[in-house]
Simulated assay, not measured.
Amino acid sequence: MAGVLESVNQRTQLVGQNRLELLLFKLGNSQVYGINVFKVKEVLQCPPLSHLPKSNKVVCGVAHIRGGTIPIMDLSLATGNPPLQDIKNRFVIITEYNMKTQGFLVNNVERIINMNWEMIQPPPKGTGSEHYLTAVTKHDGKLIEIIDVEKILSEVAPVEEEFNQELITEEVSQKAKLSEVLIADDSKIARKQITKTLEQIGVKVTAMNDGKEAYDHLIDLLAQGIDPKEKYAMIISDIEMPEMDGYTLTTEIRLNEKLKDIYIVLHTSLSGVFNKAMVQKVGANDFLAKFQPENLAQVVIAKINPQSSDESKTS
């Protein structure tokens, strides 16, 4: 276990090639789950926990790890399953999402596997809207379920979804009515959050569930004689998505002569200097860490009304 993540920093070459690595784990039964290694900071046996009064029932307590205090959530309970027992003999996956660190209590951690995003599929249709899956895949004949962590975090610790309405001047409001933005994100919660922010500005939104769906949509528009860069003020894309990730989507768009000038913002819970370097490598215009409605609103407003951005810089 101690060495399972020691080479994570050497795995960055996978990103940008539509590949990922999943850390596999179980929550108490035979079902195998996966989480992107790039979200994982550390794996350790569950440390002593301190009770947090009035905390969400999913939060087992807080742990003091490497000089910081981190909330530990029972991932089994958070996904509607029975709570894990014998906590001290279970494991914690320390993760970073949306610039926050938290731990997820799991039954046991297995291994890391290398996969292509094309092998990662959306949840089967007919599973309803209450599940906690963002994708599924198969490995060695076993079904692997990838949990929608953003949905869990939004339920345990809801993020602020409002922003300073003074950003929306009369001029911005008028230009927003004429603007449309294409978003691509495999998380239903993330799509709702982004859409709410954009609709508050007054921008029309077209939402796609992953990068491949977004790219196929752009190609379909071209086939209809519609210029996507005239239709959309910008594309806001997640990075981690089934079938085609955000880096690959950006690369494919830049390689297409008729699409290459579209303004692209990569919007992701993956954080760190590395991702900013990847943004430049694949040719995206901007990078935003999830979910910060104020920053998102500022980026969109600056694109649809550049004058407002210039004025804010000189004021």
Results as ranks from 00 to 15, higher is better:
Ala2His: 11
Leu5Glu: 12
Leu5Ala: 11
Ser7Asn: 14
Thr12Gly: 12
Gln13Ser: 12
Gly16Met: 04
Gly16Ile: 09
Ser30Trp: 06
Gly34Glu: 05
Val37Ala: 13
Val43Leu: 07
Gln45Thr: 15
His51Gln: 10
Asn56Leu: 04
Val58Trp: 03
Gly61Glu: 10
Gly61Ala: 08
His64Gln: 14
Gly68Cys: 08
Thr69Arg: 09
Ile72Leu: 10
Ile72Tyr: 01
Met73Asn: 12
Leu75Ser: 01
Leu77Gly: 00
Leu77Pro: 01
Gly80Gln: 07
Gly80Glu: 03
Asn81Leu: 13
Pro82Gly: 04
Ile93Glu: 03
Ile93Val: 11
Asn98Asp: 10
Met99Trp: 01
Lys100Gly: 03
Gly103Thr: 02
Asn107Thr: 04
Asn107Val: 00
Asn107Cys: 08
Asn108Tyr: 09
Val109Phe: 03
Ile112Met: 05
Asn116Met: 04
Pro122Thr: 09
Pro123Val: 07
Pro123Asn: 06
Gly128Asn: 06
Glu130Leu: 09
Glu130Val: 11
Tyr132Ser: 06
Tyr132Pro: 05
Thr134Phe: 00
Ala135Glu: 01
Thr137Ala: 09
Thr137Pro: 05
His139Gln: 05
Lys142Glu: 13
Lys142Asp: 09
Leu143Lys: 03
Ile144Val: 14
Ile147Asn: 04
Asp148Leu: 08
Glu150Gly: 04
Glu155Asn: 14
Val159Trp: 01
Glu160Trp: 00
Glu161Ala: 06
Glu161Lys: 12
Glu166Ser: 12
Glu166Leu: 12
Ala176Lys: 01
Lys177Gly: 01
Leu178Glu: 12
Glu180Tyr: 05
Asp186Gln: 08
Ser187Met: 13
Ala190Trp: 02
Ala190Val: 15
Arg191Cys: 12
Lys192Trp: 07
Thr195Ile: 13
Thr195Asn: 15
Thr197Ala: 13
Leu198Ser: 13
Gln200Val: 11
Gln200Thr: 13
Ile201Asp: 02
Gly202Cys: 12
Val203Met: 13
Met208Cys: 15
Asn209Gln: 12
Asn209Leu: 06
Glu213Ala: 12
Glu213Asn: 10
Asp216Arg: 02
His217Gln: 05
His217Tyr: 12
Asp220Thr: 09
Leu221Gly: 03
Met234Ile: 08
Ile236Trp: 06
Ser237Pro: 08
Pro242Met: 10
Gly246Tyr: 14
Arg254Glu: 06
Leu255Met: 15
Asn256Ala: 10
Ile262Met: 15
Ile262Phe: 02
His267Cys: 08
Thr268Glu: 00
Thr268Tyr: 06
Leu270His: 07
Asn275Trp: 14
Lys276Val: 11
Ala277Asn: 12
Met278Ile: 13
Lys281Trp: 07
Phe287Cys: 06
Ala289Gln: 07
Phe291Leu: 08
Gln292Tyr: 10
Gln292Trp: 00
Glu294Asp: 03
Gln298Met: 09
Val299Pro: 01
Ile301Thr: 05
Ile301Phe: 01
Ile301Arg: 01
Ala302Tyr: 04
Asn305Thr: 04
Ser308Met: 03
Ser308Tyr: 01
Thr314Asp: 03
Thr314Leu: 06
Ser315His: 07
